[in-house]
Design a protein around this nucleic acid. Sequence first.
DNA 1: GTCGAGATCCTC
DNA 2: AGGATCTCGACG
Length: 206
Amino acid sequence: MNALKPSFYEQDTLQLSKTLLGKLLIHETSAGLISGWIVETEAYIGPIDQAAHSFNNRRTKRTEIMYGAPGFAYIYTMHNHTLLNVVSGKLGNPEAVLIRAIEPVEGIEFMIQSRGEHIHQTNQLTNGPGKLTKALQISNAQYGHPLFTKPLYIAEGKEIKTVSSGPRIGIDNKGEAKFYPWRFWETGNGYVSKKLGSNFENNLFT
DNA sequence: GTCGAGATCCTC
DNA sequence: AGGATCTCGACG
């Protein structure tokens, strides 16, 4: 499987959030290959986005990678969970796309092992940003990894027919930003993290 | 050094 | 609805 080239990431962050849907996220671990189609994303556009860690161009050790070239992994921990973002935007612009859910493709047995015994349904393996990193064995050690190179990379995947959008999840205390429709998912996909919210759902392509 | 908050997940 | 339980960032 060929990784998408660095130039793929040189597009507007909202556009990238949509075009990442259907792409294949792959981790080649020592145990074997684990992969899944990206089915849900969120955009974070630092300078103007209260919900972003880089809001108002806040620059810290953690957000530093967001200011670099697009296509690198911004990984951070919240509570006990690891979250994976794709750095986006031009060099110097601290933007990123959060990968919120994938649909398992290969290495499902590894996903089950990694996630633990309490999982009894395949659609519970990777339907959340903390879940999918655990399933794919992604950790903070991959902070800054270029996502166009092995062992952790993104490749072409499947065709997405319809994309939906709506407000992002878990940022209710972030003022106006909580209304921005910067969450994107494949319409009707059963591996998306939360059932909608039909009030806020918009179909972008039909 | 201390302290509070959080782009979550799981169980009750 | 609440708790787990870790990291970062702000403050001093």
